[in-house]
Amino acid sequence: MLQLDTTYTAATLPENDNVNPYAFSVALNGSWFISKGAMIAYYGRIDFEAVAAFASREAWVAAQFSSPIYVQDWVVANGQGKLLLADRGYDVNSYDIDAGNLTIKATNLLAFDAGLELKQSIVPGFVTLIGTGKFLASSNGPVIFKEPPFRADPEALLGWADCPAPSHHHDAAWMAANMMAAAQGMFGRVSGEERQFDFTGAGVILLQSSETTRSDPATLRLIESQAAVLPVQQKQTLAQRLAAEVQQSQQQNR
């Protein structure tokens, strides 16, 4: 296979299709939202601008991109040309939403066109796309589609469409063993498999065939914003616990 006999040009690059399983070519004519770092090359006249800066000029952006904690991780690509997107050599697939909604892990979302609206999901680390349009997502290995009722490993979960947001499910044996500890406010993890996402209702669940995830820079911002609602005393408790944890892990690394 892979004798390199295809040299692409701006004209011969695919129009909104995969170049190979790991790279996608967007025929840009207007605006797309692009995750920082996803662009590997482009032809044409394309401007890249931070979402925040772009929103100050174009009022519609603020309405389409409704998630302050992810704003720093995204740019708007605006213009005409061919835009090549990839993510660490992961599989890249495009999906079309037709007057629907889909929730996806934020670190796996590479790009979406301006016809879609992005909102932060109630489930931390996930974002919801609403409307009609195309988006690109990466997965470590091919995507697996499942229907509820279904329990998914949080690391392998890529997203879901049309079904209600999942609830946490904890392994019964783990729960029994940890009841006492939980009552004291301490949680331990045993096998790494005791916590699952439980899906019910009708819809589709997307999984990747690997449990490797990328660290999400927005997690810290998310927790920070949530911790803001705590009263001062509880903030202090949280700070002490975190400090103790950091100290412990530093000692272990020594």
């Binding site: 040299t7 190979n20 399983p21 050599g89």
Partner: peptide, 12 residues
């Protein structure tokens, strides 16, 4: 790292 992509440049 992943299949190579060749992009031609002809005056552009």
């Amino acid at each position: 790292d992943g299949p190579m992509i060749a992009l031609g440049v002809q005056g552009d």
